[in-house]
Amino acid sequence: MIRVEVVALEPGGGRQISRQDRVTELLRERALDIEAAIAEAARIAGTGLVSSHQHGDWQVTSLEARFGLTLTAEAGVIVGKASTEACFEITLTVQRRE
């Protein structure tokens, strides 16, 4: 049984200083959220690759996307993917066409 830590989103974005308990949920119960976030991130990265694939003599030959996921919860209720945080790190390899 694998558990995953989730964070509560608070009004004021962390200004209020009540207790911050570590809350975990079963990973399998958040599987759909995680899959949806990965699919959305992959779609965005792929769309970006297509639109920047070729510029004159230069072309993008590879793209590496790294991102993290933070699962959120509020009073034990899953907030949903709209509030899921994702931080992108994109690495492009650009080569001159021969």
Binding site: G12, G13, G14, R15, Q16, I17
Partner: peptide, 13 residues
């Protein structure tokens, strides 16, 4: 009575 903290403007966490 304490209620809030001031967050760093760059490092918001």
């Amino acid at each position: 009575m304490l209620i809030e903290q001031d967050l760093h403007r760059v490092r918001r966490a």
